[in-house]
Design a binder for these strands. Structure first.
Lengths: 234, 234
DNA sequence: TCACATTTGTCCGTATGTATC
DNA sequence: AGATACATACGGACAAATGTG
């Protein structure tokens, strides 16, 4: 039995309002960078109280569609932080369900390896350039005796972008957020391993520039071993 | 420059409160099924107004940690609908970023195929049983001349569970939500193709029971062709 | 069936904090 | 530095929903 009619009004006003605003954003009526009127005026326009608007704002804020600033010329600002929100959502699931690092590493490398097929095919000059810069910055950090961890994480996000498939971007971005979260709980930093990982990244980049799928896959497998060792040290 | 000290109090009270409650849930102090005190009492305990608590509740609700009921014996109830929330999040991204169905299908089958390695290895009797029931229900629907679409979607979610890796469960659950959302926007239902898809599912299940990886992969590729045809008809 | 108690949903008015000009 | 405009927060009130006697 399917329903044919939408209810005249959803149960709660703030749900109705946040949904309406969401669909305006989807339609492109509001775009990132646009400023919304202050709470009080939105309340007037919808003919509801400010409290109701505030609860709707909490929802939109949590979805990554708006941020809110206090003070003169403040108020709700349309933004696009939806990927960040998704990443924190993944981290929440991870804490809640107590997923093991081994599980994450397994799926992550599975997925990255199939993704690599598309990267080898579709990476353009801009992707290569960004990957080069990433490896360069990582090597500089190593020289300065600081950890290249952030760059090593970013390398995989850049790979996902080079696949030109947004699903991979979403998934890898989320998984790497979990990986970073794990690492942030680790006490000791293993510099030797970080250096090895950066070295593999450089080699993988080279194999991508050669469009050499076999080599890149086998390098990825070696990288996996290194990462497993790091994750096991948790 | 890293920060060493947390601020005594985060900027906004409702953020502080929702974060505190989140971590209590992570620690297992509150478990699904538990009932929280009514808003007014929570407000008293935190020594803030009811309005502040309501905004914190909006956040927790949106994260999938609580639902709220009105009336006597109502109030906030701890639940675990986090996967549903994640799925709707994916759908939002999908609408916002206007991802094409082709992109989804490509990544989906890439990922499902690597996942299949683990399914073949790890599927236990309970998984097989559930998959059997799923295919049976789909075939019954076809006999009754109704669409087995819901069952066909569920088949892939069951496969993910059989992989015994929670990352796959999360990812496939989310992607299939997007696929279902797509389909819900489609006008015409192609019964012939639905029937073929269910037939492939039955064959794939058989190959899993045989622990025959090669056969299951090749069946998956044929299934991909069928699904691509359906998605192209959007 | 009806009244009642409890709890969320919504409103108004007001005060305080904060960022900008 | 002071005025302005905005979000944050408080308290009290009533309406609507929902289970109970």
């Amino acid at each position: 039995m399917t329903t044919y009619f939408e209810p005249y009004k959803s149960k709660r006003s703030f749900d109705e309002i946040s949904n309406q605003m969401k669909s305006l954003i989807f339609q492109g009526v509001f775009k990132p960078g646009d400023k919304l009127p202050p709470e009080s005026e939105i309340a007037n326009q919808f003919n509801v109280s400010r409290q109701t608007i505030r609860e709707a704002m909490r929802i939109l804020e949590h979805c990554g569609f708006i941020t809110i600033q206090q003070g003169v010329n403040g108020g709700p600002l349309i933004v696009d932080t939806i990927l960040n929100r998704l990443a924190t959502f993944f981290i929440d699931i991870f804490h809640f369900k107590k997923i093991s690092p081994e599980e994450v590493t397994e799926a992550r490398f599975d997925i990255e390896k199939v993704m690599l097929h598309h990267v080898i095919e579709r990476a353009d000059d801009s992707d290569i350039e960004q990957l080069k810069e990433n490896v360069m910055r990582a090597k500089e950090k190593i020289k300065a005796n600081t950890s290249p961890f952030a760059e090593n994480i970013a390398f995989h996000k850049l790979l996902a972008r080079a696949s030109k498939n947004y699903i991979y971007i979403i998934v890898i971005e989320s998984i790497m957020a979990v990986v970073a979260d794990f690492r942030s709980e680790m006490k000791n930093v293993d510099f030797k391993r970080s250096r090895k990982i950066t070295q593999y990244h450089e080699d993988i980049l080279e194999s991508i520039m050669e469009r050499n799928l076999e080599r890149s896959i086998s390098l990825f497998e070696k990288l996996l071993g290194e990462v497993q060792a790091v994750m096991a040290a948790t």
